[in-house]
């Protein structure tokens, strides 16, 4: 593994850690989406780094672009859900979303 790949994969792990930490500890719905975005950044960086390392950057780029498209669709739908929740509950706190708890 090259030095570039080494530091990139370390950064990937740190980004995924930050995103998961955000997802586990934050209570604001928009902050949770920001956490998911940070995890997605880590995954994009991992794809491109693997492409550079395996000397196949074109395929890695096409996969990264697909991943970015999926990410945009996810964020668009999730933000629409957030607005729907806000209209109903007048709050972005996930602790108010426990109506289905049995």
């Amino acid at each position: 593994m090259s030095e570039l790949a080494y530091i990139c994969f370390v950064a990937v792990a740190v980004l995924v850690f930050i995103g998961l930490y955000c997802l586990m500890t934050m209570k604001n719905l928009i902050k949770l989406l920001i956490g998911a975005e940070i995890v997605a950044k880590g995954v994009s960086l991992a794809l491109i780094t693997a492409g550079v390392e395996k000397n196949n950057i074109m395929l890695a780029q096409s996969l990264a672009i697909t991943f970015i498209v999926v990410e945009v669709a996810l964020v668009a739908v999730a933000l629409a859900i957030v607005i729907g929740i806000y209209k109903r509950k007048k709050s972005l706190d996930i602790r108010n979303l426990n109506n289905l708890r049995g």
Partner: peptide
């Protein structure tokens, strides 16, 4: 992240990262 993509030679992914994300 896009700057990193450009430096790694992934220009198309970098353009998508800047414009879309």
């Amino acid at each position: 992240l896009a700057v990193m993509f450009f430096r790694m030679g992934a220009t198309y992914a970098g353009v998508f990262e800047v414009s879309v994300v």
